[in-house]
Simulated assay, not measured.
Amino acid sequence: MLYSSTQHAREWISTETNRRLLNWYIDAWRANDKEVKNLLKSTELWFLVVANPDGYQYTFDEERLWRKNLRDNDGDGVITGADGVDPNRNYPEHFAYDEEGSSSQISSATYRGPSGGRSPRRRR
């Protein structure tokens, strides 16, 4: 099971929710909760607490409602509205399918990037 949060930098509550769930499992394990111990012995749980760490930090330091990561799209070394990619719009499946759910405009909050992110390697 993968628990992933904070694709969009400004979604602070998802970070805290995921962190608290992780701590809940740890605390239950330490308290010898039999149900949790049995679950964790038979199931892998992965916690990606912040999937967009640079954008997340930027929301604390610069702009609270920033959504994207901090990819320097124009290469000028300064983060502006023309920078960043929405990581939740950058998956390779149906990348650039249309302009309704994501945008090809770099100034858009839903800018999907120049190409789809890489797919995980398939095991053979």
Rank of each mutant, 00 (worst) to 15 (best):
L2F: 15
Y3F: 15
Y3G: 05
Y3L: 14
S4W: 11
T6V: 15
T6N: 15
A9I: 00
S14H: 14
S14Q: 14
R20L: 15
L21T: 11
L22K: 15
I26A: 09
I26R: 12
A28K: 15
R30H: 08
N32P: 04
K34W: 05
E35P: 02
L39E: 05
L39T: 11
L39A: 11
T43I: 04
E44S: 12
E44P: 10
L45D: 05
L48N: 12
L48R: 02
L48F: 09
V49G: 01
V50E: 04
A51P: 00
A51F: 03
A51M: 06
A51C: 08
P53K: 00
P53D: 08
D54P: 00
G55I: 01
G55M: 03
G55T: 00
Y56E: 00
Q57N: 08
Q57D: 11
Y58W: 13
T59F: 07
F60N: 03
F60M: 06
F60T: 05
F60I: 10
F60H: 14
W66E: 02
W66A: 06
R67P: 01
R67F: 03
K68A: 06
N69H: 08
N73V: 11
G77C: 02
V78H: 10
V78T: 09
I79Y: 07
T80D: 12
G81Q: 09
G81F: 07
G81M: 07
G84I: 01
R89G: 04
N90E: 08
N90W: 00
Y91N: 11
P92L: 04
P92D: 09
P92F: 03
E93G: 06
E93N: 10
H94N: 13
A96P: 01
Y97P: 00
E99H: 02
S102I: 03
S103I: 02
I106V: 12
R112H: 08
S115R: 13
G116M: 01
G117S: 15
G117I: 03
R123W: 10
R124G: 08
